[in-house]
Write a protein that binds this DNA or RNA. Structure first.
Lengths: 138, 138
DNA sequence: CTGCATCCTCAAAGATACTG
DNA sequence: CAGTATCTTTGAGGATGCAG
């Protein structure tokens, strides 16, 4: 009923210097996080690790279509950003356990908000695309 | 105080078929939205259009470093997804007005949630990166 | 003023094979 | 088991020129 005027105080509503300077959006924390979440595997991996911890090959088997290389690279990226922890158990053969860090777990909330929006409005987006593609000369 | 157990019912907490099938994440609405928001210009443009409507060259002047090509492409993408509207005023020379659609405005909420998280935890991420890069053999 | 067409560069992503 | 190394492909993004 009252969604004609959503007044959410946020960094997004803060005033911006116009023109927006290059450095303002070249190294923007928001874009930074969105680019990580926007890659092909990070979110899926974080969803799995949100349920329990996984070993490397266990993740590999759990995600159809991911290559070893991309799994490694994505895990390294998430680990570098402090979202995922990597624990080596010195056994023979070695086993490596991946988990969400506490920082990683705090990310699941905002991510859920966005994910729910995406699923809820997916039909709208699909419809808009069909309309647009129908009118475009292709 | 009570953030040790965040129980948010969401699509992210729903059970997943393991292994996650290819089609499940190849055309996933969530990834889809994240990839759009994760590109270099979409969010910035939506933030500007969230404040008021803009004409093409006005946007071009307002965002330092964006090329005409990328501005056009990004606007087309947002328009195709139904997030931004494009209105041509048949004057001489023609002026084109860009606005957020109502769908686009509903997106600002979830986006803000994520943006606020990003800004809040930016120091944590930066610290994690420094730690990681220091220990990595480069 | 508002674009589209063309050409170019570069990094992300994928395929495949090999290793401690 | 848990990766690394190498090669190839794809697409995002940028520079420039032309057009309605």
């Amino acid at each position: 009923m009252s969604d004609t005027h959503t007044d959410v105080p946020s960094v997004l509503t803060a005033p911006l210097p116009i023109p927006v300077p290059l450095e303002e959006h070249r190294a923007c924390p928001v874009t930074d996080v969105l680019r990580r979440a926007g890659d092909r595997w990070s979110v899926l991996i974080m969803i799995l690790l949100g349920k329990r911890s996984y070993r490397f090959n266990e993740l590999h088997r759990s995600i159809e279509g991911i290559s070893q290389r991309m799994l490694t690279r994505t895990l390294r990226g998430l680990e570098r950003d402090g979202l995922v922890s990597r624990t080596v158990h010195p056994s023979v053969p070695p086993t490596v356990e991946y988990d969400l860090t506490s920082l990683g777990r705090t990310f699941l909330g905002p991510l859920s908000t966005l994910a729910d929006w995406a699923v809820l409005h997916d039909p709208d987006i699909a419809a808009a695309r069909e309309r647009h593609d129908a009118h475009s000369p292709h």
